[in-house]
Computed example of a mutant assay.
Amino acid sequence: MLSRFFRKGKHDPAKELIKWLEGKPLECRSTISYSFRVGHYDSQVLDWILAQPDCDKGTAAHGYWEAMLGAVGEYAALKDKPDGTTPNLDLARNVAQRWKAGAFAKAQFGCPTDHYWKETCKRLRKYRVKAAELDNPAGLLEQFAGDFARWSPKDDLDKGRMIDLVRDVHVCDLAIEIPEEWVPVRKRRLGY
C-alpha cells in the first residue's frame, strides 16, 4: 500500500523480478520458472532464466514444453496472419536453438515431458500442424526424472518480496490479457 506513495509511475515488474533473481541459485530460478506461463512480462522473466549459463536441461525442457502448448496455435495462425505476435513460438524456438547448441547444463530438476507431449499432440491435431514443422530438437522428448525445484528464501522478508514480485508480474500480464477485470486490480496493487 505504501509503495503507491513512493513509486514514481509505471515500473517493469519483469525487470524488478530479474533484478531480485540475479545472484540467486539455480534452484530458486527454476522454482520461479515453474510458476510462469508465457505472457508479456512472464516471457521476459522466462527468457532471462533460460538464458542463464547454469540453466539445466530439466528447467529448459519445462520452459520449452510450457511454451509449446501455445506455440502450436500461434504457428497455425501465422498462415492467416503472418505478422501476428508469437510469444510462445518465439520462446520455444529460442530454447530449441540453445538446446541444439548444447547450452544447457545437465538436468538437475524433473520435467514430465510425456504429459506435455500428449497435450502438444492434441493441439497439433486440432490445428492440423505436423510436428516436423515445429522442429523439436532431439532430446527434448526424454523424460527428465526427478522433482521440480522447491526453493524458498529462509528470510521471511525476502520470501515476502519474492511472492510480491511474482504476483506483480502475473497481475500486469493479466491486465494486458483481460483489462476489464485486471486493470483495476493492478491499479489497487501497483498504483497505475
Rank of each mutant, 00 (worst) to 15 (best):
L89C: 12
M1F: 06
K79P: 01
D54P: 02
D156R: 15
A92P: 03
C172A: 15
S30N: 05
G160P: 00
A145M: 03
G102N: 02
D164S: 10
I163W: 03
Y75E: 14
K81V: 15
T113M: 11
C111W: 11
E74H: 09
Y75K: 10
L89I: 07
G70C: 04
K24V: 06
A101Q: 12
E27Y: 00
K79Y: 00
P184Y: 08
R98C: 01
R150H: 03
K118F: 04
V95S: 15
V171Q: 11
K10C: 02
T31F: 03
S43A: 09
P137W: 00
Y127F: 15
W20M: 04
A145G: 04
T31L: 06
Q143Y: 04
L26K: 00
V129N: 07
E22I: 09
W99T: 05
V95W: 09
V129C: 07
M1Q: 09
T85L: 13
T31P: 00
K19W: 03
H170I: 14
E133R: 01
A96F: 00
G110D: 07
L21T: 03
L17W: 01
D147L: 05
R189Y: 13
A61F: 02
G146I: 02
D47P: 03
A67D: 11
L141R: 08
V38E: 11
V171F: 11
A132F: 00
E142C: 03
D168L: 06
L78R: 13
P112C: 10
W117L: 12
K159T: 13
E27Q: 09
P13E: 15
P25C: 09
I176V: 08
R4E: 03
H40S: 06
D155T: 09
D158V: 13
Q108K: 15
V185P: 00
E180H: 15
K154L: 13
